[in-house]
Design a binder for these strands. Structure first.
Lengths: 225, 225
DNA sequence: GTCTATAGGCTGATAGAC
DNA sequence: GTCTATCAGCCTATAGAC
């Protein structure tokens, strides 16, 4: 493994600096938005000079673009390709929620970036980022459609259902940091809920809420719940 | 009714200018975040000079504070006090979702402000705004607790359930503008769903998802769905 | 590849005329 | 109460030394 931190001499590992800037930019943009961050602060967090942002990414906007790409590179394999089309829709849906939550919990800044990108032109004036997110969630839509066709789910609107599930997930993980912060500063009385509890809760809520009402045992809640 | 737009002469209606700045600030902050907006642009949208922001609100931050107060002043009576404690929990929950959605649909910028405030220090460095939102939703928690005690709802975690419902609602309305924008620019294939459809969908999903599994007819889906 | 120094532009706030 | 003019400060980006 190479040296990841800068030493006394000049340039050593170009990739290390690049990655440090990406990490710092993600943290900063997620916390205060694109316009709310200065290149100086990002460079300070990364431990390098701010001029290197222009050198490595062509500027502040270039760093954001690189981050957007990174989000999808890491989310793609975990989400887009995961639900097995050969399993039943109920299992697929649980897997999807689980996979999404695992990624979101591991990379806590991603949900915030996604949500910011879906809201307005702050981090993404052209809307390309939001568009990619919604497209990547055609997987979820497909699962819902399959479940309806299989008769496991009620004939709900897949788009509305997708918005409900995605909204709950993104909201929970995007606001987790704030919730934790407020809990630790004593501004709120209840302790912050854990991600795993939320995921199990959401799976139950959604599967039950979508279950087709065709007699008993139509959509059995699985034993692991 | 007074003149709301400025004429050729000097000062006429102080309240009109104040309101114009509030409206412009809400629109701008919701679209690009606090740091993403300049006082000059807000003043341009309001049709007045930017110096008036300092005069009326003491500065840019003061305008944001005033907006935060306005959000809760308008949301308070509609949400905090609405669910009737004497009705049953299922009706209460439907009323709550309906009331929230009506307010969010009427004031489309409020959900974005709420979500931004819940995410990070962009619009709200101290977290006071987020704290107020979560406190205001003790009503929702109370409804859920009541439903569980009544035996209409499963013994779910009220906080997790609150996060799910609130997340779906805020997500849908906070991203509605972006969804519309992408649909009209042809970047996405499906037409944007309407708010009323979503609300009915969410009511069904949540009520069914929360329903206690005590034999048939425990939580009947009402005829209006 | 990384730094320092600097340029040029824009920001938020304010003093003062009306 | 509203405007114009202006300020100091910070921002991003870049040229050039090493």
């Amino acid at each position: 493994m190479r040296v990841t931190k800068n030493r006394n001499s000049n340039h050593r590992d170009p990739e290390a600096t690049r990655n440090a800037l990406l990490t710092a930019g993600l943290e900063c943009f997620a916390e205060r938005g694109f316009a709310g961050c200065t290149t100086q602060e990002i460079a300070r967090i990364a431990g390098v000079n701010k001029a290197l942002i222009s050198y490595h990414f062509g500027g502040k906007q270039g760093l954001l673009d690189a981050l957007h790409n990174q989000v999808f590179e890491r989310l793609g394999p975990g989400i887009t390709g995961l639900p097995d089309p050969r399993g039943d829709a109920v299992t697929n849906l649980k897997d999807y929620i689980g996979a999404f939550a695992r990624l979101a919990d591991l990379n806590t800044d991603y949900p915030v970036m996604l949500l910011r990108g879906l809201m307005a032109g702050d981090t993404d004036p052209e809307g390309g980022f939001a568009n990619r997110l919604l497209e990547s969630n055609r997987v979820l839509t497909a699962i819902l459609v399959k479940g309806i066709e299989e008769g496991r789910f009620r004939p709900v609107d897949p788009l509305l259902t997708q918005a409900s599930i995605l909204g709950s997930l993104l909201f929970f993980f995007a606001t987790a940091a704030t919730r934790r912060r407020m809990a630790s500063s004593g501004k709120i009385d209840s302790p912050p809920p854990h991600a795993l509890h939320f995921v199990e809760h959401l799976k139950e809520l959604v599967i039950r809420g979508l279950a087709a009402e065709s007699g008993p045992g139509a959509a059995p809640p699985d034993p692991e719940g």
